[in-house]
């Protein structure tokens, strides 16, 4: 029996924007079915790292694997070849992503938002995509809103549609980039509930968040990042209740 590779494995990942080094060697492993939460002050590089996982940002040095495959490159002998656009797109189709500002397509109805990629990218028929979308809308509690336009929905509803849109591609990994940061406080709960259900269903998730309660309760692992490095990681309860590093302590004292 062969052991399956971890869902995400980062080895000394570096990323710079011009002169600024944003990621200074990230090592991290996310197992299958695991929920990994990444916390840290803004500018710590946590969102950038998340965007590297589906190649929205290019890694400058180090290696990043998703499901055993190198992200953005193909190894042939000793050499690495950059993947062509179509190949990158195919890999991205297997990874769902939810953005801070939802990024729903405003000119399309909720239904059209959800079935667009399954139809165009996977070649699924409209009928199949629509019935899958109906199930997903039920799952995120938005049955009956399929013909609404995004601007007619509240932020929390929009974010739940965005989650349904990502799930419509039947991804093996879900990335969440501060999914509740742009929401009014009273709408945060409904989005976290959907994410909690998703985690319970066994989805592998990497969640960049400021919701410490969610990280403690749902996360299998917690990473605290600051200034482009992982300062501390471990089971959420340990890191949160008994931080070892001064930087973690001072960050937690501000957000808790």
């Amino acid at each position: 029996m062969t052991t399956q590779p971890p869902m995400v494995e980062a080895i000394a990942v570096h990323k710079r924007f011009g002169q600024v080094e944003v990621l200074k060697g990230i090592n991290l492993t996310v197992g299958r079915g695991e929920v990994m939460c990444i916390i840290g002050p803004s500018g710590s590089g946590k969102s950038t790292f998340l965007r590297c996982i589906n190649h929205l940002e290019k890694v400058d040095a180090g290696q990043l694997y998703v499901d055993g495959d190198l992200v953005g490159y193909r190894r042939q002998g000793d050499k690495l070849y950059e993947l062509r656009e179509g190949e990158v797109a195919r890999k991205r189709a297997e990874i769902g992503m939810v953005f801070q500002r939802f990024n729903l397509f405003p000119h399309m109805t909720v239904m059209a938002n959800i079935i667009e990629a399954p139809m165009r990218v996977q070649g699924v028929s409209r009928a199949t995509a629509a019935s899958r979308a109906d199930q997903l809308l039920e799952r995120v509690g938005l049955t009956g809103r399929e013909s609404a336009y995004p601007r007619q929905l509240s932020g929390g509803q929009q974010q739940r549609v965005a989650i349904a849109r990502a799930l419509a591609m039947e991804p093996k990994l879900m990335l969440f980039d501060e999914p509740t940061s742009a929401l009014d406080p009273e709408l945060v709960g409904e989005v976290l509930d959907v994410m909690r259900d998703l985690a319970a269903s066994g989805m592998t998730m990497v969640v960049v968040t400021h919701e410490i309660g969610f990280a403690r309760e749902v996360g299998d692992a917690l990473v605290f990042m600051d200034d482009g490095v992982i300062v501390e990681s471990g089971p959420p309860r340990d890191v949160l209740s008994n931080p070892q590093h001064q930087r973690t302590k001072s960050f937690l004292s501000k957000v808790l």
């Binding site: 929205l56 797109a89 195919r90 890999k91 992503m97 953005f99 990024n103 990218v121």
Partner: peptide
């Protein structure tokens, strides 16, 4: 963000 969302869904340029 629109381009990013579309790309993240696996759509080509």
């Amino acid at each position: 963000g629109q381009t990013e969302a579309a790309q993240a869904l696996g759509m080509t340029r």
